[in-house]
Nucleic acid binder design. Structure first.
Lengths: 344, 344
DNA sequence: TGCGCGGTTGTGAGCGTGCACAGCAGAATG
DNA sequence: CATTCTGCTGTGCACGCTCACAACCGCGCA
């Protein structure tokens, strides 16, 4: 008997042919019922549906993908997914993608070197995705990467060499606003606890900080760079606690801000009475820290939705796609870690 | 759903045949080079590689998946991915999967009703995954779900009706230990802020709490159920702050614990002087809250790795697979939110 | 009777791969 | 010289699905 041959263990379920045989129709008719794109006589349809049910049939997606050249899936590329910013964006992307009938595949780039991005991105063409969303990448020189666009791409929080459509918060403006909030409270200067030097969001937030200080005629003190973690923020806080000049710190994310606050607290400096602190991101816990954190709230759901929209609108569209950046507004939320500068 | 009907747009890249033509060999030889599973003469190989490079060829995964009956991907199913526990597990699963050459697809079940799990799981057979990891699901009656195992499944933190291999922390034991820690500090009773009633981890942690109290000969007060969020913890904290009997609270996760602590703080109750609080999960920020949170540290990386191992070991294995639960130890980490009971 | 028509269903083909099974040289062996 | 062996490469096929096209059926109408 030809056929079964050396095909090892049959691991695929029943095929369209099995359903067709059981229902006494052709495979094409089963396909019609399955896709719903064409009309089938009611009784035939009923018979086919029963056969499907009986066999537990569900269409083989690989075959479908091969046939239509589409996977119905988009890839999400990042260094890691367990940090708050990434997790929130991931969830938002997932929801937006599902609304459009797409699934989401996660892909990590382990090496932070920007040089390694290209091979990584190349490998992605090997993935079963129709498009790619690249999330914040840090560590490399300037978050930059060059990529031959072999599929639709949208970028978040990074600075590509090529021109890809991009979604970002208004980082510069929000950072500037946050620093002005501190200046308006009477602080003589505002220190900055920034992200890694290579990171694009880090760069933009630092730029906003610097701009505000310069506008106020204040010479910016040297910014401190750390790796986004609360632990790093805590370490920096210990170093800063002894400096009487430090009455206000603008942090590039909430985790670092919270670590910083703990260090101040441990050193006997009360926030906000002695030092004011502002974070960035607006993570859920920022509302419930002790004291609640003044921060810049990013609109992660909207960022995710925009990223998905950008990628999907390129799929099936003739190249070149109109490349446009989308800026999603973010908002300073004043809570209880900022107060007027202490009297001297 | 966007009416995406664009047919006829050819979006696939160069095929194995294109490479073969350019290199002057047969498609099979290109395949040999591509898979590396067979020997090819060095100069031929070189020619093929050059042709691949020139055309930017990469193998079509849909065709491969169709041929092999495998996708090289596993699905990760959860309600949401932006909360800490899920995000940490997701990251761990992703890393473990990539180590084994698998990618990870995210799938959400929007409806919390356990009845909706089955259709959802059914739909999953429609996904391009070889196996499935089901993460903590809450909201339904008892996190339970029945599923016809059409593919390898591993379960985390849930209670399936069918028997699937399962990974869990030692929730009962850890919770018990955490509560004993409070009792040893002299607290006359320990209140419990639990997760949703339907949730399995919630149930186990509550059971551990109850067991410890009963062992100590204390009648457990009525537990309070909330939805895992810091916001809910905050609301509960406001209600509890006025009760002088409340000197110790065991919370089913860290977020709720932090919300609770803020509420106590706002009500003038000092943690841990007036009230001791213990969390659960060991999220990164628990180390850096003010004051640092005593909590039960889960080993998320190991949980993720075990889940992946379980699913992959079923792939290609003859059914039925030996169903065994794996318990990953978790550890009470004593920090600064617990202290001896206040003198009365 | 012949023709056309709309509604349904079947047939053939091919998407890109990789396995089984040749073929075909050249070298080693009898 | 014939024969086997070894190393490399090509041919045919099937994976499951859906599209284009053709075929069939019953009916209405001239």
């Amino acid at each position: 008997m030809a056929g079964n041959g050396a095909r090892g263990v049959r691991k695929t379920g029943p095929s369209i042919g099995d359903v067709a045989r059981l229902a006494g129709v052709s495979a094409q008719t089963v396909s019609r019922v399955s896709t719903g794109r064409e009309v089938v006589a009611p009784d035939t349809r009923e018979r086919v549906l029963r056969a499907m049910e009986q066999l537990g049939y569900s269409p083989n997606r690989a075959a479908r993908a091969l046939r239509d050249g589409r996977y119905g899936s988009i890839g999400l590329l990042a260094h890691r997914f367990d940090r708050t910013g990434e997790a929130l964006t991931t969830d938002a992307v997932l929801r937006a993608a599902e609304d459009q009938g797409y699934s989401v595949s996660l892909i990590t780039v382990h090496d932070a070197e920007s040089d390694k991005w290209e091979p990584a991105a190349r490998r992605l063409a090997d993935q079963t995705v129709d498009g790619l969303i690249i999330m914040r990448a840090e560590g490399g020189p300037g978050d930059s990467f060059a990529m031959r666009p072999t599929m639709p791409v949208a970028v978040s929080d990074s600075r590509p060499h090529g021109r890809f459509p991009r979604v970002a918060s208004n980082e510069f403006g929000s950072a500037r606003e946050a620093v002005w909030h501190l200046l308006d409270l009477g602080h003589r200067t505002v220190h900055h606890l920034g992200g890694p030097e290579g990171s694009e969001p880090s760069r933009l937030r630092a730029a906003g900080w610097r701009a505000a200080l310069l506008e106020a005629g204040i010479a910016p003190p040297a910014p401190i760079h750390a790796d986004w973690t609360a632990e790093a923020g805590h370490a920096v806080g210990r170093a800063l606690a002894d400096d009487p000049d430090v009455t206000a710190v603008f942090c590039a994310n909430d985790e670092m801000a919270l670590g910083l606050i703990l260090a101040f607290h441990e050193a006997g400096k009360v926030v906000p009475r002695d030092v004011s602190v502002v974070g960035y991101d607006g993570i859920a816990l920022s509302r419930f820290s002790v004291p609640p954190l003044t921060t810049v709230q990013q609109d992660f759901p909207r960022i995710g939705a925009e990223l998905v929209r950008m990628v999907l609108s390129q799929i099936g569209a003739p190249r070149p796609f109109e490349v446009a950046d989308v800026v999603v507004p973010s908002e300073l939320v004043v809570r209880s870690t900022t107060a007027p500068a202490p009297a001297r």
